[in-house]
Nucleic acid binder design. Structure first.
Lengths: 262, 262
DNA sequence: CGTTCGAAG
DNA sequence: CTTCTAACG
């Protein structure tokens, strides 16, 4: 769940949402704060364990993972030195499963930001292979949750025609996601799409500009990517699009899945 | 009246205060906006004429004068080239009286900001003499209203002991105000003090930090400086300290005077 | 403590 | 349109 500033989100309804959530694990992106800047009840909500990986630039990026049980291990970053302190990846081990919280960089076509995004994508693709290999070798499953900042197909974005040259829906980005998902390549499964193969969306992000939310002019860029064994155990997967602006506490919406035998 | 950002003030209660005010003229300081950034009903409130002198640096300083009748003339600045576009002085002519809105710079003892404040003070002192001379020659009165950013005497500041080395209560600043007020020198009259010679305050500014407002830990730095003839016609002069935090829409409070034959 | 701007999303 | 920092007050 991309919270777009955990301090702002917690002033608007994040804790209320969390209190009603039945999730065992919550992955946060765009925390945009260091732990000492968070009120105690936000930093470690009642009944949860929380681990944070802030960015080294104040007020930017930052990921976290909340678990109801203490994790067996916590790892920050994914091995790429350039992104070691970027606040963009954090993973925890729970019994039988590794969970990653990912915040893939925002790009801007034709700029150095896009080059950075693509360097991140290349390095992270390699890490995804490594993670899947380790998990298989250890007899574990893995789940990488987060804001991938890429919509895969036309069904994953409302205005696909108008966004073909925009970062987040560029052909090379869509191809990269295709490789992540290809059975003979990355081998990961997009859990929401696997359970809802034929529908539009469900979108998980709507710009705050204009009437995007009201018109459901959204993008499905927040995804839960599971190893095949775990994906096969998914019983439901959905996006919690807020019922009203009053219930909205981020420009993203939570994406949730349930698995048998969790 | 120093509004500390006219946009913020108007969101909090400035227009409501203005609607209940019986003033014929209102001088504003720290407008912190250009005219095109202001909603129409804020830029020129119903029933008023308004003239603005913004600073050339966005979001800083800026003075204005509101009058119920259109002014006969409007002049921006006071002749000092260094401060021509500083958004710190604007004057209008009304029948028989010239009214200036002044926002004297904030200083910081021992820094270049204090040097700038002192250059402003020197140049403005010369202008005050010029203004008084012109007014006398034309048979007019003059009134310079605004945030002078200096407390004159111990009775003008709650914690005078702790502020003797702080900009706003430095000996040289107090002496400068003394010269502005001296009958044989500047010859101006501090209208509120003239009508309330023996009281503490009334303070017109309280820092937002801590409990300053609740404890009335304030400074009397907003003053109406009148030529002698006009000062003699003052019938009342007061500071509108808000009754509660809810009614507070700036860290300053309005300072108002009434004159016979206005 | 509060208002702005500017960068970022 | 909203978040945050930084400078300023």
């Amino acid at each position: 769940m991309n919270v777009n500033g955990l301090r702002a989100a917690s002033r608007k309804g994040y804790l209320k949402w969390l209190a009603t959530s039945r999730a065992d694990v919550v992955c946060l992106q765009e925390v945009r704060a260091e732990e000492h800047q968070l009120p105690d009840d936000v930093r470690v909500p009642e009944g949860w364990h929380a681990v944070y990986a802030p960015a080294d630039t104040p007020g930017r990026a930052g990921v976290a993972v909340l678990t109801r049980r203490a994790p067996e291990a916590v790892r920050v970053g994914f091995g790429a030195p350039e992104f070691a302190k970027a606040g963009r990846y954090l993973e925890v081990d729970l019994p039988g499963v590794t969970i990653g919280s990912l915040y893939l960089p925002t790009g801007e076509a034709g700029t150095p930001k896009q080059e950075m995004k693509e360097r991140f994508m290349a390095a992270f693709f390699a890490y995804l292979a490594e993670l899947r290999g380790k998990a298989a070798a250890d007899g574990r499953e893995a789940l990488v949750c987060g804001d991938w900042n890429i919509a895969h197909r036309e069904a994953d974005i409302k205005n696909w025609r108008g966004n073909r040259d925009k970062s987040g829906f560029l052909p090379e980005e869509r191809a990269w996601l295709g490789r992540v998902l290809a059975p003979e390549d990355g081998g990961w499964t997009d859990v929401v799409r696997a359970l809802h193969p034929d529908r539009e969306g469900p979108y998980s992000w709507w710009t705050y500009r204009g009437r995007a939310f009201d018109n459901d002019t959204g993008w499905r860029i927040d995804m839960l990517m599971a190893t095949r064994g775990l994906a096969g155990r998914a019983t439901e997967a959905f996006v919690e699009r807020a019922a009203s602006h009053d219930e909205r506490w981020s420009d993203h919406a939570p994406v949730t899945a349930a698995f048998t035998g969790w």
